[in-house]
Design a protein around this nucleic acid. Sequence first.
DNA 1: ATGGTGACTTGGC
DNA 2: TGCCAAGCCACCA
Length: 121
Amino acid sequence: MENDDSDQPGQRQEQGQEQAQHEAQNRVYMILAAVPSGKVVTYGQLAELAGLPRAARLVGRILSNLPKETQLPWHRVINAAGRISLAEDSPSFKLQKACLEEEGIVFSNNRVSLKKFNWQP
DNA sequence: ATGGTGACTTGGC
DNA sequence: TGCCAAGCCACCA
């Protein structure tokens, strides 16, 4: 048979995109959950490990959408400059910094030691 | 539908 | 060392 399975390209494609996004988000969660205490990872690294090169910004968006009750170590994610990508006066900033210091991360002038970037899965 | 913005990154000065 | 500009991706007005 000619197989007229009639996949409506439009709708199918749209669903595919949405699913892909969801998958990507899920992968980011997995990678993030695997980051050990005492270590940090940058948005770019997290994106790359999740198979999303050049999507550092997307990771930031995903984190911003995390529920406040999340179990994920979102506080272990910092930017490439070794800084916390949040406003200093923001409660989230203070929380993140406090969590990292609890884990032994040392800050110098609001910046994390670059040596901590050496985390391999 | 074009433009602006943001938990980003990299390269140049 | 620090600021600026361009690139990149998704979302919102």
